[in-house]
């Protein structure tokens, strides 16, 4: 049974080193024979068994004897575990690619997050974006956010809190960074910019965050309906003309240059915080720098 695991392991290692390819070929032959209910004839299964038992024997002869007698059962269990963990890992990678977290939209601890370290992010060099708070404050907080992303929505209460409590001491700049995995995220950014032009940005922003799925699914009609409800004049013309699309693209480019890999990403005095807990961490950093912690 272990040749199934060997095939996976050696095939993967073969991508990096040719010395593993003959082993992968032997494992493949073994798997092919097992799949057709014939015994493995490459000897690989015996080599794995001997190496495993010898390895255990160096530490405990009793354990080696125990495993040797039940090797088929252990092999079966390990093979099942291998496939289960392989499937879970594949699911995690897919979630990570789509949602930026291996657990999917619900979030939680994700081991792959270590691959993308906030320490390697670069703070933005321009103040372009939606500006709030005290523009002449010494401390600037940047947020790269996606209007239709659940994590950016979850951060909103903390953002509001920071603006209300420390707005006189902090300059806050929101930079739209619509994620392609969230439907209509870019058009939400364009719509919000049109609302900003009409002086109704924060109302519009709140409307989107209060019902993200409506905008993800509703598209143009939803954006226009909200503008109508908020009495934003000239919205449809601005939106249909994609007036701020270029500005949004510039913001995306800037985010990419900074190395943004997930939203929301906050920069507080150059230090980056990413993901689900980023807002709370950014708030704590702001309070530390302001000496109010």
């Amino acid at each position: 049974m272990l040749c199934f695991i060997a095939l996976g392991v050696f095939a993967f290692l073969s991508l990096f080193s040719a010395k593993y390819r003959p082993l992968a070929a032997r494992a493949f032959s073994c798997v092919a024979r097992k799949m057709t209910l014939r015994p493995c004839d490459t000897g690989l299964d015996e080599e794995i068994k001997a190496a495993s038992i010898a390895g255990i024997m160096k530490f405990s002869p009793q354990a080696a004897s125990f495993v040797n007698r039940r090797f088929a059962a252990f092999s079966f269990a390990f093979t099942l575990l291998f496939f289960a963990s392989f499937l879970l890992a594949a699911q995690g990678i897919a979630n990570f690619a789509i949602y930026g977290n291996c657990n999917g939209p619900e979030g939680g601890f994700c081991i792959y997050s270590g691959i993308q370290n906030p320490a390697f992010l670069k703070a933005p060099s321009t103040l372009q974006g939606i500006s709030a708070g005290n523009e002449s404050a010494r401390l600037t907080v940047f947020e790269f956010g996606c209007y239709t992303c659940p994590y950016t929505r979850d951060a909103e209460d903390t953002v509001k809190f920071m603006l209300e409590k420390y707005g006189d001491k902090v300059h806050f700049v929101f930079k739209p960074f619509p994620l392609p995995t969230h439907p209509n995220s870019k058009w939400a950014a364009v719509a919000a910019a049109c609302a900003w032009e009409a002086g109704k940005y924060w109302e519009y922003r709140e409307a989107i965050f209060s019902n993200q799925s409506y905008y993800r699914e509703g598209g143009d009609a939803a954006f226009k309906a909200t503008a109508a409800r908020l009495n934003i004049t000239g919205f449809d013309g601005c939106f249909d003309a994609k007036k701020f699309l270029a500005q949004i693209e510039t913001s995306i480019s800037e985010g990419k240059e900074c190395g943004i890999y997930g939203t929301p990403t906050f920069f507080v005095d150059g230090k980056a915080f990413v993901g689900k807990d980023a807002a709370a961490e950014a708030k704590a950093e702001v309070e530390r720098l302001l000496g109010v912690a």
Partner: peptide, 14 residues
Amino acid sequence: GVKHHQVALMCDSL
């Protein structure tokens, strides 16, 4: 109770 290949391989490993 121990296959010949296993004996030879284990002698090599051990």
